[in-house]
Amino acid sequence: MTKKKGANHPWIIVYMLPLAVFFTAFFIFPLVFNVSTSMMKWKGGGEMTWNNFANYGKLFQDDTFLLSMKNNVIWALSQGFIQIPLATIVALILARNPRGWKLMRTIYFLPNVISTVAIAKVWTALYNPQFGVINGILKSLGLGGARNWLGDMSTALPAIILMTVIYIGYFMIIILASIMNIPKELYEAAEIDGATKMQQEFRITIPMIRGTLATAITLAMAYGMRHFETTYLMTGGGPAYSTSTMGIALYLKMDALRYGEASAAGIILILLGTLVIVAIRRALGKSDPMTEAAQ
C-alpha cells in the first residue's frame, strides 16, 4: 500500500458504507433469516421454535407444493427451450439488417418496460370467455367454440405460458448484440466459398454465439423457476392449484400465517434456482455461471 492509499483509507470505508448497509440488510440478512426460520415453527407474530426439518418434510408431502414444483419445471423448460429459440430466430433475421431493423428491435423490447400487472390484465381480458379476442379470432377462423382458457384446468397453464414465451424482446436484444459482434470477415470468406445464408447461420453464427445462447437459456430457465407475478395476477394459482408455482405456494403459506413453511419454500426456490443455473451451465458450456450472469 502506498502512502496516498493509506491517506484515503477512511474515505474508502465511508463511500462503501451505504452499499454495505443496504446489501447486508436486503441480501445477506434475508438469506440467513430465511435459512433459520425455514427450520422453525413460526406463525408470524408469535413465538419462533426450532423444529429442524419439519417444514421441509411437510412441503415434500404436500401435493400442491409438489405440483407447484412440477409447474416450475414446465415453466423453466418452456422459457429456455421455446422462448430462446424464438428469440434466436428473430435475432438472426434482424442481424441481417432488414429495412427498419432498429425500429423493430425497439418495438420488440417495448413490452418489457410495461408492468406485469398491465400485461397480465390485458391478457386476462384477451382470454376472457365472453368478450375475449382469442375466442373471437378462433371463431372467425372456424376453429371450435368458446373456451374458458384460464378457468379450465387443462388450458390455464399452457395459456399463461404461451403469452409469456412470445415476449422475446429481452433475450432477442442480448442475442442480437452477440451476433453483431461476430467479425464480418467470417461471412465474407464463407460467401466466397459458396456457402448459402442458411449454412452461414448454422456453421458460423450459432457456433459463435454458443456462450450467449447458453447464458440466455440458463437465465430464462432461472426466471422460469422463480415465476410468480403473471400467474398470480391471472389465476392466483388456480383453478384447483393447476397453475400454482413455488412462489405462489410460498405466498399462500405466508397468507395462511405458516411462516416457517413459507421460509422453507423460499429456500427450496433458491436451491432449485441455483441448481438449474449450475446444471444448465454444466450441460451447455464450461464457463462459470456466477461471473457470466453477473458480470
Partner: peptide, 14 residues
C-alpha cells in the same frame, strides 16, 4: 453483482 441471481420473491418472508 451476483445478487441478480437471487430470486427476490424467495425473500418475501424476511
Amino acid at each position: 453483482t451476483a445478487g441478480v441471481l437471487i430470486p427476490i420473491i424467495s425473500f418475501m418472508v424476511p
